[in-house]
Write a protein that binds this DNA or RNA. Sequence first.
RNA 1: GGAGAGGUGGCUGAGUGGUUGAAAGCGCUCCCCUGCUAAGGGAGUAUAGGAUAAUCUCCUAUCGAGGGUUCGAAUCCCUCUCUCUCCGCCA
Length: 424
Amino acid sequence: MLDLKKLKKDPKSVVDNLKKRGFKLDLDKWEKLEALRKSLQSDTENMQAELNEISKEIGIHKKDGTDSSKLEKKAGEITLKIKSQSKDLSPILEDLDNFVSSIPNLIDEDVPEGKDEEDNLELRTSGNPRNFNFTPKDHLELGSQLGGIDMESGVKITGARFVVLNGDLARLQRSLINFMIDIHTKEHSYEEVYVPYVVNSESLFGTGQLPKFEEDLFKLQGKENFYLASTAEVPVTNLFRDKILDSKSLPAKFACHTPCFRSEAGSYGLDTKGIMRLHQFEKVELVQAVEDKDSDTALEELTGHAEEILKRLELPYRVVTLCSGDIGFSAAKTYDIEVWIPSQNKYREISSCSNFRDFQARRMKARWKNPSSNKTELLHTLNGSGLALSRTVLAIMENFQQKDGSIAIPEVLRDYFGSNKIPS
RNA sequence: GGAGAGGUGGCUGAGUGGUUGAAAGCGCUCCCCUGCUAAGGGAGUAUAGGAUAAUCUCCUAUCGAGGGUUCGAAUCCCUCUCUCUCCGCCA
């Protein structure tokens, strides 16, 4: 949620900033609503103050046993007025609320301007795409040959964009989970957490998936406000909701493996082959809550943590800064890490690392006690994939494939996997 | 799923209709006292919104959430939710 004080103080810069992401803030509407709210609210509050005063007096009269009927009559009139006024006020408050909670975060100064993913800015690359001395296959072909990727069963059991992995590939994914979590906990000092995969609407509001992006989520029947988590960001970041953290516990860093469920509405026809884009996939997520002054460095650090996994797996990748038109609703700045996919001859997203600054924290009242000012201040939250599992499996298959269709296992993973290749 | 009990400030815990935003204690902050330590004394210590140029200030809201009764609700009524105890079921 935006800092409304900022909007009041300097509406133009807020409008300009939001414009960069292609969001048109209807300032007129807001100012009108706000003016209306102000006058109605201060009016009601004044009446309430008067009523409180009179009620107190009545109390004193009752205690003394003196007559208070005149006061009671007057108070009754005021009460009626307040009630009718509140009826006018509450829809305005609701409008304001909806209006404000649908405004995306402000983007950082150094976010490149642009329209869509074409305008994202490449920051660095790591590793070199391999030169194949044979024609490389795509992961689906490889997986089908190995009998490890079973799209048909996924469709039968559930439907399109669901998959069954068998044998070595299932084990490869599981070993990757352990590998990633171990590095993040042992070397990058994250604490491992296990969290619910079903989340309520408050949690989704907190991280910014609601109210605007309900169509991306799977909603559960029955329980009115339960959804399948689209990312561990939701349950893990909400660990900080309604909390005031001690400065000693900062930075708070959590690593978490969960499945992710996304309806992928609006992605019809995109990545229909194989396991690139699924309704259900596994992910190891990194989440941090830090002091405001630390979030810039924390983003660099967190991105580095995700990159480290790719480096060790010897997968070529690049890091891009998302441009103003491509960045997500809640983020102030985002680095996407893209892994090399030989069959597509390009880099594809495998991790997205974002600094949300105080945007999520304001929505979920995630605060910390600043000992120097002795005040409670909003935390800054960050998260990033470290990494998305199905795409890591895909990338290993394609980048490490051998001429005979077998797949070599990256050196660092062999102990976890228990062998040095997946035979054809 | 059935039956009961309960949700009060950073924590513990009083408070069943009237100057209660809320006693007391703990914790924390500042000050005083003591040669040091131990101890003692005093003051302060929620969040959000608003008025104001701003602050000491003032107003409003908040005692799980939402409604209701009343001049007035932490306190009474209704709905929901969560926690605990017992029973049932169960990986």
